[in-house]
Amino acid sequence: METLREIRRRIRSVQHLAQMTRAMEAVSASKVQKAQAAVLATRPYAYRAWEVIVNLSSGRGIPLHPLLTLREPVRSVLIVVFTSDRGLCGAYNHNVVRTATDYAHRLEVPVRYVAVGKRGRNILWRLRAPLIAQFSGLPAVPRLTDITPIARLAMDEFLAGRSDEVLLVYTDFIHLLRQRPVVKRLLPLHPTRLDEQVVSEYVVDLQPARVADYIYEPSPEALLDVVLPRFTELQVYQAALEAAASEHAARRAAMRNATDNAEELLRDLTILRNKARQHAITRELLDIAGGAEALGQRREAAG
């Protein structure tokens, strides 16, 4: 049996551990809220920007913008996977990467990957998946400027013709206890197939204001040139925020489990400690009693 001192040391260390996991749980919970608030704040812009795109692209006589053009057949696909930089978040990263690779296996064309987050990069690396770029070091709640390079890369690949379709795979935040990996299309944008896009969660019931004669400055094409890249960035941004909210929620859940386990361990250890202490007391009492007995016997013998 372990000595009392050893058990006490273990109790202290488990207590410290529980304190840490409890703190991380609280921190993660607050980050979930921040990411959620940020993603909700994109809603007005998403709605208005989409309205503008629908308005512009429904005008007659305007040639279709390259970012809006569907390509048939699709010969190669680029998948952007959103994962975390850090672990301690359960199966979060594995789930989202598996969703991406499963989807890729079902496609019958070559797929290349862009990894966002160190964990995803490492997993894809081990799977020997063709990785063309990786982004890491995003803050806990990313800002638009943090993800602009990701969107740029996606648009460059698409416009250069190296990929005929760009997909985003990220973990959709449903609520604190539920997150689900999803596959959404980023490019090409298609005004009539909104439901396949990231933005569909934030733009519902869109009825663009029908105005017959707009003055376009400088021209509808130039306007689309400005709006479409912004809108693409916005969708990547929304995906990154959803992923961030989900990551923190997953970490919160993992830390909650760890705290529960630590508490259970503490209960067991406390019982063990009490037993050991009782045992030590009994032994000491026996010693004393034994000693007294011996002394008494000696006195009898002397007297």
């Binding site: 400055e217 400088p218 306007l223």
Partner: peptide, 8 residues
């Protein structure tokens, strides 16, 4: 009452 306009 400005005319409908879209501009960069």
């Amino acid at each position: 009452r400005h005319a409908p306009l879209m501009s960069i």
